[in-house]
Design a protein around this nucleic acid. Structure first.
Length: 259
DNA sequence: ATGGTAGTAAGACTA
């Protein structure tokens, strides 16, 4: 089962890219972020035409998440973090083929020390408390999404700029990510790749992609029980080369069948 | 880089 995460930065603009990529990559499950669409405008019938069912939690202009599954039921859908009041649509979770899939659009945080940064850390603490429960309820757990945190220096093009006091790489953000991993989750990409310089996001500004000035902030985390089933993982750079692309590329993990 | 580009939506906000 191939499970992917993609921040599409407006599904309205990116629907043709998503359709093309679904045909090319044939993922079984996809978590989307930044759909920027109200639910009434979600293109569920266009996706159904490609064989994908979808569930979604959107809002106008900002945020918005969705889960897609090909030829599989999407069950026990949860929107938002239980008990955490938040108008921003950043979380959707569901059970697909016995795997609990949690799709996160982590708060960006703007700059270290801002109100948005404090919200990011608060939000991550709430996610941690929730996932503590989720991993006990669902041993086969995948947590994926746009984490807006680069795990370590291999995941940034310039560690001198992207340092312990910079947004997306700050000490507090990385510590929050480590606490999620401490629940018994593993960055699937690092199960199969040790090299640095593989990125999933490149700033639109200053020709970031052409110069490969990127970060790896789109992650697929797998639980202990799924670790041995994770046989391959990667980031698919190709859609980032297409005309009028998202600033993010899809990140994916392949799980082999249960024994 | 107190810039830069893109999306939304019609000027500023978010990333």
């Amino acid at each position: 089962m191939k499970i992917a995460s993609w921040n599409v930065n407006s599904l309205n603009v990116r629907l043709p890219h998503l359709e093309q990529w679904l045909r090319d990559a044939r993922p079984d499950v996809v978590g989307l972020q930044e759909t920027k669409l109200e639910d009434a405008k979600f293109p569920d019938s266009a996706l159904a035409a490609l064989g994908y069912r979808s569930v979604f939690a959107g809002q106008k202009t900002y945020n918005g998440v969705a889960l897609l599954a090909r030829d599989r039921a999407i069950e026990a859908v949860q929107v938002g973090i239980p008990g955490f009041e938040d108008e921003q649509k950043r979380v959707i979770a569901a059970t697909i083929d016995g795997v609990r899939v949690v799709n996160l659009y982590v708060v960006n945080g703007q700059d270290v020390g801002t109100d948005k940064y404090a919200y990011k850390l608060r939000w991550l603490a709430a996610v941690e408390a929730w996932l503590e429960h989720e991993r006990r309820a669902h041993p086969d757990l995948v947590v994926l999404g746009d984490f807006n945190i680069a795990p370590d220096d291999r995941d940034v093009h310039d560690p001198a700029v992207w340092n312990e006091s910079h947004i997306l790489t700050s000490a507090d953000e990385r510590a929050a990510l480590q606490r999620l991993l401490g629940l018994g989750l593993h960055d699937a990409f690092r199960l199969h790749h040790t090299q640095g310089g593989i990125f999933s996001w490149w700033d639109y500004r200053q020709a970031g992609f052409r110069r490969d000035l990127g970060l790896r902030i789109d992650l697929t985390l797998v639980s202990d029980s799924l670790r041995d089933r994770a046989v391959a993982s990667g980031v698919d750079r190709e859609p980032r080369t297409w005309d009028r692309p998202s600033d993010h590329a899809p990140a994916w993990v392949e799980l082999r069948r249960r024994d």
